[in-house]
Computed example of a mutant assay.
Amino acid sequence: MVKIKEGYVMSQREREEYERQNVLPRKASGRVDYYFKPQTKYPPRIYVFMHAETWCDRNRRPMGLHTAFPFLSRPMTKGEIEYHHFDWRLCYHQYEDWNRLLYAEEKEAEDLDLEMEGAGTEFLNQLKSFREKFPLNADLGKLPPVPPELPADEETVYLRELIDTGDALSGAEVAKLLDDELKTQKRPAVLIALRQLYQNFGKPDDKQSPLAEQAIRRKVELQQQRTRRNFVRRVWQKNKLFAMEEIRVKYPDYTANMLAADLHQKKKTAKRKKHKPVTDLRQCQLQKLAHRLKYAQLDEKDYHDTCNRIAILQQAHSLRLPVPLLVNLQKEALVYSFPWKIREGVVKNFVTLANKPGMTHQALQERHNEMVRSNYSY
């Protein structure tokens, strides 16, 4: 049975989820796989994957074991299957100490012996045989030594002091330091740090930007690249023939590949023009006729009929003539007139209404009057 902490009271949602999973059938069997992870910057360890048959290679990627193979496997006991029946995530254990691993597996081996005679003892002996092959004592001395830090120059020393003690400075002190730096050395990293400190005085504590040397160095690098790129483009625009020689006066290590990269400009995405949708009846009909004229295979008669229809519609639209609609009902034909900019959907709805069985001109005229005389746009 799943272990529930003594005295723990489930919420209504937890109780419902527990009861939902409790009625589900248990798995008939399961597998436990044992993987060894060699020492990296972390100590070596052994991973124990429960219900290993459900694990995919990609699930073991965070542990760095997506291409590894288990060195040992065993069947799960009924108690383990019952306990892990309520897991809603993949479950695994990791051990950095053989004694703890063996202590845990001895109990599982006893249960396994009760279910399958001798299986637990055989598994435990196999597991112990791997103790010498896969030592778990972390030997950090075998890791490559940390490279010695190079002596910092004067700018770096001053920058690090500023990062450490900058929060204790007042706004007036930061402003004075910034003004002095602008008048004297103009060191980019120091200027960026002082500006960031000065900006923090106008922000609440939770929105202040902390100073970090790596981030400041990155900003300096981007600033230098931007300055060089702008200089290269100005020189190239003035004198393309001798641009490389002129650039190398300021940047001796400048290459042709760097020139191509600096001159490259990303294509600007063309701004899509916004067009109001065409909704009035005559414009919609003109678009459909133009499409038919362009793409349809028309004979001479259809071609002339289409052209004549376009000319008639265009003339009526230019003169803003009302849109006539002929309706035949009960052997009686009447013409209903609509405004010249009536929407196509409104006319279609009116035609649908006219085609309903039992419709009369009287009912249709009432609807037409509502549409034409209403202050609202139909």
Results as ranks from 00 to 15, higher is better:
residue 361 H to V: 00
residue 330 Q to T: 06
residue 180 D to P: 01
residue 146 V to P: 00
residue 166 G to P: 00
residue 32 V to R: 08
residue 376 Y to F: 15
residue 304 H to Y: 09
residue 283 Q to H: 13
residue 344 E to F: 01
residue 252 P to F: 06
residue 16 E to S: 06
residue 229 R to E: 10
residue 27 K to T: 00
residue 208 Q to N: 03
residue 191 L to G: 12
residue 31 R to N: 11
residue 65 L to C: 03
residue 122 E to T: 13
residue 238 K to L: 15
residue 72 L to Q: 08
residue 251 Y to G: 04
residue 156 T to L: 12
residue 31 R to L: 14
residue 181 E to K: 09
residue 265 Q to H: 10
residue 342 I to H: 01
residue 218 R to Q: 12
residue 205 D to N: 04
residue 118 G to A: 03
residue 265 Q to D: 12
residue 343 R to N: 08
residue 126 Q to E: 02
residue 295 Y to F: 14
residue 130 F to P: 07
residue 72 L to D: 02
residue 78 K to D: 05
residue 157 V to A: 07
residue 115 E to D: 13
residue 294 K to M: 08
residue 310 I to N: 04
residue 4 I to R: 04
residue 7 G to D: 07
residue 363 A to F: 08
residue 63 M to P: 04
residue 160 R to A: 05
residue 300 E to W: 07
residue 57 D to G: 01
residue 121 T to Y: 07
residue 68 A to M: 05
residue 352 T to P: 06
residue 105 E to C: 13
residue 312 I to T: 15
residue 152 A to K: 05
residue 308 N to R: 08
residue 17 E to V: 01
residue 37 K to R: 04
residue 16 E to P: 03
residue 373 R to V: 06
residue 272 R to N: 11
residue 266 K to P: 06
residue 364 L to Q: 08
residue 247 I to T: 00
residue 132 E to N: 15
residue 257 N to C: 09
residue 283 Q to V: 07
residue 112 L to N: 07
residue 84 H to K: 11
residue 321 L to F: 07
residue 11 S to A: 00
residue 358 G to E: 00
residue 152 A to E: 02
residue 352 T to H: 15
residue 38 P to C: 03
residue 134 F to L: 14
residue 162 L to H: 00
residue 1 M to G: 12
residue 188 P to E: 06
residue 124 L to E: 00
residue 343 R to S: 15
residue 50 M to D: 15
residue 215 A to I: 10
residue 351 V to R: 14
residue 127 L to G: 01
residue 227 T to H: 11
residue 233 R to Y: 07
residue 292 R to S: 11
residue 128 K to N: 08
residue 54 T to E: 15
residue 182 L to E: 03
residue 314 Q to P: 04
residue 171 G to H: 04
residue 200 N to W: 09
residue 62 P to S: 03
residue 237 Q to L: 07
residue 164 D to W: 15
residue 109 A to K: 03
residue 122 E to W: 04
residue 182 L to R: 12
residue 341 K to Y: 02
residue 235 V to G: 06
residue 118 G to I: 02
residue 163 I to A: 10
residue 160 R to Q: 14
residue 29 S to R: 08
residue 129 S to Y: 14
residue 19 E to S: 05
residue 352 T to G: 11
residue 316 A to F: 08
residue 13 R to N: 14
residue 5 K to E: 14
residue 187 R to E: 03
residue 34 Y to E: 12
residue 18 Y to D: 06
residue 156 T to F: 01
residue 158 Y to N: 05
residue 222 L to T: 06
residue 45 R to D: 02
residue 229 R to P: 00
residue 337 S to D: 11
residue 167 D to H: 11
residue 51 H to L: 10
residue 170 S to T: 09
residue 191 L to Y: 00
residue 261 A to L: 09
residue 378 Y to L: 08
residue 93 H to M: 10
residue 168 A to H: 09
residue 217 R to Y: 12
residue 118 G to L: 06
